[in-house]
């Protein structure tokens, strides 16, 4: 079985977000990681490979540090990687990314495409769905259990108040939700062997794309940080009086009761 995983490089979950002089998100000195939901996708791909045989390819679009997360996936056990660079693109959106990934995927063989259900940075949860749409593939979102048999995928997903089990023919796009699996640590041998595995670097021009095709349809106009949380208030006094004062403040000041 041939599986392609689409990880994205994101800020570390503990990174402090700041804006630069131009009002853009400051990327200087920020630790970058593989989007945690994409780690579930990579892990699931490796487990499916271990069970059914086959090959796992990881593909990511982005800046010059993207090979770090691809190398991580190779160290975990993926077989090969493709990095599509973002050179020459000033601004991108989900349309840009999905267009580029889908174009590349047309040249790859796959039975299954896996991704995280969303990235922890912009959280738009659109790219995998757009890729499925462009390629005309069925898609199951936010999957917590996945079985593959006889050319079909049976996937469980959380829905409000319960679970839904759906079946789709392969090839299909499946996105991972927390709970699907527990990603492995790369082994030391895996890390050392990763450098011997193929990592292809492509540009957008290599894919025959450019200009309007990859221009963003959505543009961010402004970024701003949430206002700092104001100091809490401690109400002193006898418990009964303090409780009455708390209720008064909740009603009159906070207007929540």
């Amino acid at each position: 079985m041939k599986i392609v995983v689409l990880p994205k490089q994101t800020f570390d979950t503990e990174a402090k977000i700041t804006l630069d002089a131009a009002g853009k998100i400051n990327r200087e000195g920020v630790n970058l990681i593989m989007n945690p939901y994409d780690e579930f996708a990579v892990e699931e791909a490796l487990r499916l490979k271990e069970k059914h045989g086959g090959e796992v390819t990881v593909v990511s679009f982005g800046g010059p540090k993207v090979p770090d997360i691809l190398r991580q996936a190779l160290a975990m056990g993926a077989d090969k990687a493709v990095h599509v660079g973002d050179e020459g693109l000033e601004e991108i959106d989900e349309h840009t990314t999905a267009t580029i990934l889908a174009k590349l995927l047309r040249d790859l063989e796959y039975d299954l495409i896996l991704a995280g259900w969303r990235a922890i940075d912009d959280g738009s949860a659109q790219v995998a769905g757009r890729v499925a749409e462009i390629l005309g593939l069925p898609m199951v979102n936010m999957v917590i259990k996945l079985d593959i048999a006889e050319g079909k995928a049976v996937a469980s997903r959380e829905i409000e108040g319960g679970y839904e089990v759906v079946e789709v023919p392969l090839p299909a796009v499946i996105t991972a939700q927390k709970g699907l699996n527990e990603p492995r640590y790369p082994t030391m041998k895996g890390i050392m062997q990763a450098k011997k595995k193929p990592m292809q670097k492509l540009t957008i021009a290599d894919l025959g794309l450019g200009g309007e095709e990859v221009a963003p349809k959505v543009r961010a106009r402004r970024y701003y940080l949430p206002s700092p949380r104001s100091q809490g208030k401690i109400i002193t006094g006898e418990p009964a009086e303090a409780a009455a004062e708390l209720v008064r403040l909740l009603r009159e000041e906070a207007k929540v009761v």
Binding site: A75, M188, A194
Partner: peptide, 14 residues
């Protein structure tokens, strides 16, 4: 090197 860094990071996480 990339390998040294990854080994350090994985061992730290573990």
């Amino acid at each position: 090197t990339k390998e040294q860094k990854m080994i350090r990071d994985v061992v730290r996480e573990f």
